[in-house]
Nucleic acid binder design. Structure first.
Length: 929
DNA sequence: CATGGCCGATCA
DNA sequence: TGATCGGC
């Protein structure tokens, strides 16, 4: 229970696991926030003043111009002068990510509406187990209630195939004369085929999911669809942005041949280096030769087993329902001369950090009905030019910023011998270069009786001082941890699932769990025929309490395996046996399939080595495309993304994927079905007539495939939404401009913000300055509840946060003066001048040209910086000692090689796409141990 | 001076 | 529990 939940190995390929990954998420968020920059090259930057700020996200237009992460803003401008560089908002002197967190939650909400089996992996990534939905859909297909039409698979790719049509063709072949050896072999192949069909059907669902995300949030994402989390994650990266990729089982071996081991999720760091070094290998494919015992002996038991299975495409980790973070924290670095050298400064920053966590904790309390019980303070100090980091955990007794800050300070003091410099009561002995505060160990609150959540909080925070039990320990708690029968996925402890959420999860579990025999008879219609053998029903989930948790997986295998006779239609028809022509032959990979027990005893089935190779090989040239290729056209299309969807006829070809030589049988049922549905609206966009003469020969998928690899054409892939009607606009009563409906509210905020008096901001600044000169960084105690409403809150830390949501609009100057001042500046934008032009003005402090709408933030930066330096100066200077050095000296930097956390040096080598490179014969895999 | 904040997992 | 690592 302490470790991760895993499924039974019998179900290793039974799940449909999806990783949804938002494309350059921060950029999209900024784009949505500021429509004026939509479609332009964008890089999101934080801490602007130094070298243009550090880039933390780059959108695809900017990537096409060579802009990368790791660059500073200035450098990006050199590569791409027209680039927009929106900043991460700063609050309390540090980057504030709430904007992105909220956007991420919006996305997650949409995802959750598709399945409760959602695991948020980061702010912009989530795993979904959609096995249940897939089975349902397959059932519907068999009953003729759903048709898998080509447009359902727009922007879908399959690893190892030229296009999705080829993959479908492959699946529709009823028998594989190819490898045609042992029965067990064909049995296995049959199982694989069933599994991969689930992926295909899953892809249609994922397309709907992504469309829903786009529709409801405006954000685009990519997805990987595979049988487990690791592979789904890996696969999601093969085609982006705004596309999705399937990883069929039989494509795994080939993929692995060119896949550097270090690209696999748990192997990206030191461990991966070690593995490569010890085993003298580089690619995933080379891993398969080592017995489990050897791997275990080199890399720990658990890890060894994991690697052993991963080498065979197996990852048993379940997708667990996890929506909320288990901890809420924030931190800040103080590099170089920014290191904290005085008590007051330390106190100041602890307060800032504590304020932020408190604010977020209160919000979390409201939303999730839980309270954190533990506080962890982490910090690093420089001792003899070496960074030493420490963390201490203490009880979190109240959601009170000052209390938290005080406790944190106390913890640091307690754990630091020689905290103060000699002879001083304010100057620190060791400069602090990093500070972090994090709250965790959440426990659910009782369902507040009658009262609102706020009362609950107050009662808690007031009595918490003595008792550290929350007011009511409750019945809800039981349902979470206790009695739920065999859960699919265990709920994270302390995930204070509130309200409907809990029910939803449980419902999901029931659904997947409680129905062992669902609608039977699914795809086997078209499969069963040639497989006279009764597939031994795979294990059910009941066995092994700790395993087999993913009931979805087990039930799925059940379903598929039920022999069944039913009126056919749906996919049965769709994928009906087409006559012989299957070009691809065997796809071996015997190893992949066997469970651990059996694997080692299996002979390396001599497989014909053509098979996979054959359809994997071409395509290489496509990805060679240089970034400069399709630039111009992109620029033009930029802001009028909505285009008619020509190429209707292309969709038809989905069913008739172009094959090198033999044309697919025109008579095939599959094709007929597809043609019938062809007139439906499609999701593929226009296609410039440059490659592959656009005769009906090249299928649309193929072209879009090329597209995918040729970066500059990212635009066209946005097409799946291109048939959407343009959003209606409303005229703004104030400025008379047409505003897209969904922007209207924020546009109103814009005017509201402008109308706010400037003095409000000035008060804040004055307040800061006051604190600075009075050397009292501690704000007056503020109400325990986070300030939500605006209004001239009297100073303190509450003020900036109150303005946060509209901060970016606040301007020192009135709208009129904005316009008039525009003359004196260079406008960085080249765009159509009629929409919200960008004005810059010169900062009196650093001389840089700053966009007006971020001038205040910029000024705040200087103020905060001065505050910090002033504090440091006062403290360093005060005591008698500490002397000879000028105020801010701090340590000769030295080589500072001491910095921990170095990054893998070669993070640059990329695996663009699996296929590529010269390959060893397939047989090299099955040499077995 | 310099990816900067994050978050989670693992191992002792 | 704390130190460290991995990854976004």
């Amino acid at each position: 229970m302490s470790t991760k939940t895993t499924i039974n190995i019998k179900n290793k390929f039974d799940r449909v696991v999806v990783l949804v990954d938002m494309d350059c998420f921060y950029c999209q968020v900024e784009e949505k926030l500021n429509p004026a920059i939509r479609g332009k090259p964008i890089a999101v930057v934080q801490y602007n003043p130094w070298q243009g700020g550090g880039i933390i996200a780059v959108n695809y237009p900017a990537r096409a111009e060579g802009v990368t992460r790791h660059m500073r803003g200035d450098e990006a401008k050199q590569h791409c002068p027209e680039i927009e560089l929106p900043q991460v908002p700063q609050v309390r002197g540090k980057a504030d990510l709430t904007r992105y967190r909220e956007a991420g939650k919006d996305v997650a909400d949409v995802l959750k509406s598709f399945t409760p089996l959602l695991e948020r992996a980061s702010i912009d990534e989530a795993y979904l187990d959609i096995t249940e939905r897939v089975l349902t859909r397959i059932h519907e297909m068999n009953e003729g209630k759903f048709q898998l039409r080509p447009e359902k698979l727009a922007n879908t790719f399959a690893v190892g195939y030229e296009n999705i049509g080829e993959f479908i063709t492959k699946l529709s072949n009823t028998f594989d004369p190819a490898g045609g050896t042992a029965e067990s072999n064909s049995q296995e192949r049959l199982e694989y085929k069933k599994s991969d069909i689930k992926l295909l059907v899953g892809a249609s669902i994922v397309n709907e999911i992504r469309a829903a995300v786009k529709e409801r949030t405006g954000f685009e994402c990519s997805a990987g669809i595979a049988h487990n989390k690791i592979l789904a994650k890996l696969t999601a990266g093969f085609h982006k942005p705004n596309k999705q990729t399937i990883l069929p089982i039989n494509s795994i071996p080939k993929l692995y041949e060119t896949l550097p081991l270090k690209k696999v999720k748990g192997l990206g760091g030191k461990l991966g280096d070690q593995v490569c070094e010890v085993l003298k290998i580089k690619f995933m494919s080379e891993l398969v030769q080592f017995p489990e015992s050897v791997l275990q002996q080199h890399f720990e038991q658990r890890m060894g087993s994991w690697m052993y299975l991963m080498a065979r495409g197996i990852d048993l980790e379940a997708v667990t329902a996890k929506f909320h973070s288990k901890s809420i924290g924030c931190c800040k670095r103080f590099p170089g001369k920014n290191a904290i050298t005085g008590l007051a400064t330390l106190h100041h920053w602890l307060n800032e950090l504590a304020s932020e966590v408190t604010e977020r904790l209160e919000k979390d309390l409201d939303e999730n009905n839980r309270t954190a019980k533990q506080l962890t303070v982490s910090y690093s100090q420089q001792i003899d030019n070496v960074d030493v980091s420490s963390t201490r955990s203490i009880a979190l007794v109240a959601y009170d910023a000052e209390r938290i800050a005080a406790d944190a300070l106390d913890a640091i003091k307690r754990n630091t011998e020689r905290f103060f410099a000699s002879n001083s009561t304010t100057a620190l002995h060791n400069p602090i270069k990093f500070l972090g505060i994090s709250a965790g160990k959440f426990e659910p609150n009782g369902a507040g009786k009658g009262g609102g959540i706020k009362q609950m909080f107050q009662s808690y925070s007031s009595k918490a001082a003595n008792a550290d039990e929350p007011p009511h320990e409750t019945e809800r708690r039981k349902s979470v941890s206790g009695e739920t029968p065999d859960v699919v996925t265990e709920l994270p402890k302390g995930a204070g699932t509130s309200k409907e959420e809990q029910q939803q999860i449980e419902k999901g579990n029931d659904a997947s769990n409680g129905e062992p025999s669902k609608p039977k008879g699914l795809i086997q219609h078209f499969l069963q025929r040639q497989s006279a053998l009764a597939p031994g029903s795979t294990g059910k989930s009941e066995e092994t309490g700790s395993e087999a948790k993913t009931a979805s997986a087990s039930s799925s295998s059940e379903d598929v395996n039920q022999p069944e006779s039913k009126p056919k239609k749906g996919i049965a028809q769709f994928l009906q046996p087409k006559s012989a022509i299957n070009k691809e032959s065997s796809l071996g990979s015997g190893e992949l399939s066997k469970s651990r027990a059996t694997v080692e005893s299996i002979e390396p089935a001599a497989k014909p080595k053509k098979g996979i190779e054959q359809f994997l090989k071409p395509k290489s040239d496509v990805q060679q495309e240089t970034a400069t290729g399709h630039e111009q056209e992109k620029e033009e299309n930029n802001n009028d993304e909505v285009e008619p969807a020509p190429y209707l006829d292309d969709t038809v070809e989905l069913a008739v994927p172009e094959q090198e030589e033999s044309q697919p049988e025109p008579e095939s049922r599959m094709e007929r079905d597809v043609q019938i549905s062809a007139p439906a609206p499609i999701h593929e966009s226009e296609d410039p007539p440059e490659e592959k003469p656009s005769t009906s020969k090249a299928s649309f998928v193929e072209r879009s495939n090329a597209r995918a690899d040729a970066k500059p054409d990212y635009k066209e892939t946005y097409a799946e939404y291109s048939f959407q009607v343009p959003e209606p606009t409303l005229e703004c009563p104030q400025c008379k401009k047409p505003i897209p409906e969904h922007e209207f509210q924020s546009h109103q905020d814009f005017h509201f913000a402008l109308s706010l008096s400037q003095q409000q901001r000035d008060e804040f600044r004055n307040d800061l300055k006051t604190k600075m000169t009075s050397k009292s960084p501690l704000p007056a105690k503020r109400p325990s509840k986070a300030v939500v409403s605006a209004g001239p809150t009297s100073g303190g830390n509450g003020a900036p946060s109150a303005n946060l949501s509209i901060a970016r609009f606040l301007s020192k100057v009135s709208p009129e003066s904005v316009r008039s001042s525009s003359a004196e500046v260079a406008t960085g934008s080249n765009s159509k001048a009629d929409e919200v032009p960008e004005y810059h003005t010169k900062c009196s402090d650093c001389g840089k040209f700053i966009p007006l709408d971020s001038l205040d933030q910029h000024n705040d930066y200087h103020v905060a910086k001065r505050l910090q330096q002033e504090l440091n100066r006062l403290e360093v200077v005060v005591p008698s000692q500490a002397t000879s050095k000028p105020a801010l000296v701090v340590v000769a930097s030295g080589a500072s090689s001491s910095t921990k956390r170095k990054r893998p040096a070669n993070s640059s080598d990329k695996v663009t796409s699996p296929v590529k490179q010269k390959l060893k014969p397939l047989s090299s895999y099955f040499t077995k141990l």
